[in-house]
Design a protein around this nucleic acid. Sequence first.
DNA 1: CGCTCATATGAATAGCTTTTCATGCAACGA
DNA 2: TCGTTGCATGAAAAGCTATTCATATGAGCG
Lengths: 108, 108
Amino acid sequence: MKSAPDSSTCAEKLKMLADTTRLAVLESLMDKPRHVSELVDLLGVEQSLLSHHLALLREAGLVDALRDGKAVLYQLAPGVAASTAGKAIDIGCCQLSFPTSKKTSKPR
Amino acid sequence: MKSAPDSSTCAEKLKMLADTTRLAVLESLMDKPRHVSELVDLLGVEQSLLSHHLALLREAGLVDALRDGKAVLYQLAPGVAASTAGKAIDIGCCQLSFPTSKKTSKPR
DNA sequence: CGCTCATATGAATAGCTTTTCATGCAACGA
DNA sequence: TCGTTGCATGAAAAGCTATTCATATGAGCG
């Protein structure tokens, strides 16, 4: 038992994504798997805080952790990486596709 | 006076969707425009509460309100209704596509 | 072993968001 | 104009979630 019996509704799942830190983690991982330390200085957040967020993402079944020596490697959970083209995340109830390009800014 | 200079990040925008009531409203509106009273008993939430959520959706630019006599008609904001096929919402930074069917449950 | 590095965990706190309750305001009909 | 219907708004109360701080755990090294 390790799934996420709590995040049954789509809104619950979206809440996982609706956080700057967690979304940044996922976007980083869409690129490739990374160690915690890498994420720490890539995102510039405190180790402990990141760890809490990673725990949430793990519990939500969005990422997988693999021990790698003293470090831990994180990667998108299989099935979540719904990459038809460009970057996308599949959370079951819906699929988020990010523009293949880059920046999120686009205030018309 | 300000629209939404704060919802600049994708996470901010996702927070708008990450709520059962608001998501339900949007899904209802994807179908067709509806009056507040219709939404009230479709979703079974209190009028005042729904009104607060509608205000947030309005401020986020996700829906538009049109007065219709004593009532008010709500509809998805143009541009948000990303109709590729099936149901989808475009919030700028990313696009959420819902399975064409309707049920969200599928925890295999 | 004893130590250090890399990460996780727990408890307390700070900051929001959602919900409720009471009230306000616009549109309509009599 | 009044009374009523339909919706919006504001403030206080509830409920959560994120952040911090201190400490724990697992791995590798000498």
